[in-house]
């Protein structure tokens, strides 16, 4: 085997391993999934858009449907992870933000629900987040995934 063939083989192997690695990571039960009600007119969403939605800076989906962001209740670990990844804020900063919004325009922070998956299934225009292990196929649609670290 020539040197160039060896390099080529290694490249193919590493690519294959990379794909396998990604496949394996994609199935991690601790992945953070952003899920939305089936009526939501988008199939993918960026982290920046999510931040705007959960800070209520953006309140309607394309087409005018109201966005209903839902925070998870009773799972501070998941809530903190979402805050860190998507909002890029500390708990204190987020508290200040909503205090400011409340006084500025009467805007209220998103509601917190214990079973967000059920709520997202039912509420038109809603969007929330769950761990992959809690996700139920067909109930809501996945619009973004943040792999477990």
């Amino acid at each position: 085997m020539t040197t160039s063939m060896r390099i080529f083989s290694l490249l193919i192997l590493s690519l294959a391993l990379g794909i396998v690695g990604r496949e394996a990571r994609a199935e991690n039960p601790l992945d953070l999934l952003i899920v939305a009600n089936s009526t939501v007119p988008i199939d993918t969403i960026t982290k920046d858009d999510l931040k705007q939605i959960f800070l209520k800076q953006r309140q309607t989906w394309p087409g005018g449907q109201k966005i209903i962001p839902l925070h998870v209740k009773g799972n501070p670990e998941l809530r903190n992870r979402f805050r860190k990844i998507v909002l890029a804020m500390t708990a204190a900063k987020e508290k200040d933000y909503w205090e400011d919004q409340k006084m500025r325009s009467g805007l209220k922070d998103p509601p917190e629900l214990k079973d967000v998956l059920k709520a997202a299934f039912r509420l038109k225009g809603s969007i929330t987040y769950v761990l992959r292990k809690d996700y139920i196929e067909g109930v809501v649609k996945i619009v973004a995934t943040f792999p477990a670290e």
């Binding site: 109201k66 209903i68 009467g106 509601p111 038109k124």
Partner: peptide, 16 residues
Amino acid sequence: LEEMTADVDGFEKYFN
């Protein structure tokens, strides 16, 4: 699920 969301019309009604 039906019971939980029966009174929700797709928006959060509030009076604060």
